[in-house]
Nucleic acid binder design. Structure first.
Lengths: 189, 189
DNA sequence: CTATTCTGCCTATAGCTTTTAGGTTAGCGG
DNA sequence: CCGCTAACCTAAAAGCTATAGGCAGAATAG
């Protein structure tokens, strides 16, 4: 029988695409098998079990996000960097809703440590250097930025901002503006 | 055979409790049937199907949250009200993680309209009256507050803020402080 | 170029879940 | 006490995860 050439990587990537199409919660081993036109049991040669596949998709998403964030921050600082980083998360969530959801799968300790998660915190902290904020305010600010980015993006995805004027792009710009003034206010400069 | 006395309400309530114990995603019709020591098929006399049960749990959570928010806002204004409302969401999410997750289930249009969702937006808007912010800034601010509250609470639940000093309570207080100064700055007063 | 080994994918199977169809019986209204 | 409603049942179909073991295509050794 024609071999399809499955590998763990291809499975994870296909799972990520499937997540974007039908939602991360609906990514099932059988759906994945159907997509490769392969028996479900064949997948188990490449992934230990289904939860493992899900965390691998999460790790992929976190890594892709970290790549984009690294690019976006290169050569920028201050509000420029703030806007760029915020847009990385928002754009990624809109282009790849399933992957974005996967990125917020709760990982066990080892997986979390091996993931690009800590890198995200470091990048946000790096962004704050442009505002010159001392500890412990810097940590608080990292958490605030993470909360706003994640909260805005998920509420937007739920459709929370689409039912009334003004449109979401305006609120997003306003929000980034507000964060910038807030951070400048806390600056020790 | 001894009748247990199932009703839709009891099922939904038990589902909500189950969600808090094992996670909203793990609330299954069979788990619910086991909890009542009843055959699974018996549930279908009280709920049309499983998705309906999930949305009913979501509606319950949204209503409970709205109740708490109403109480919290009564007689308060300004930063006092801001802190009270924020704490409603954070405390609810920590006491009832499964219900909180349920509250962010994406509902179809009719269910969403019939839910307490819009009420939450109205309450946040009411809170802003203490800051006297004109449109369209008020709408932007409603969305910002929603984003911060939801984002902070979910990142905290994921364990994102528990791995390093300062502890989460301090960041939360700092965040509410920051929001207050931000809103006062935008005040037209 | 053949023989052997490895392994990618298979079928079969078991246990769990959701959902439908239809039967039985408890317990109330008359 | 009779009968009706509805609460709960068993049976069964269909889909999902996971394990075990088999076959044949591909890589490798000689």
């Amino acid at each position: 029988m024609a071999r399809v050439g499955l590998t763990t990587e291809r499975l994870v990537l296909a799972g990520a695409e499937l997540a974007d199409e039908i939602g991360f919660a609906n990514v099932t081993a059988s759906a994945l098998a159907r997509r490769f036109d392969v028996a479900v049991a064949s997948l188990y040669a490449h992934v230990k079990n289904f939860p493992e596949l899900r965390t691998r998709i999460a790790l992929l998403a976190l890594a892709e996000l970290a790549d984009r964030a690294t690019d976006a921050l290169a050569g920028r600082s201050g509000k420029d960097a703030l806007v760029a980083l915020g847009n990385v998360y928002r754009d990624y969530a809109r282009e790849h809703p399933g992957r974005y959801a996967a990125a917020h799968l709760t990982l066990d300790a080892e997986a979390a440590a091996a993931s690009a998660g800590p890198q995200h915190a470091r990048m946000t902290r790096a962004l704050l250097r442009g505002y010159d904020i001392a500890e412990p305010d810097a940590t608080h600010a990292v958490r605030l930025l993470g909360s706003v980015f994640h909260g805005y993006v998920t509420l937007e995805a739920e459709g929370g901002f689409s039912h009334s004027a003004p449109n979401s792009d305006e609120s997003w710009a306003w929000t980034l503006d507000a964060l910038d003034t807030l951070l400048r206010k806390w600056s020790t400069k």
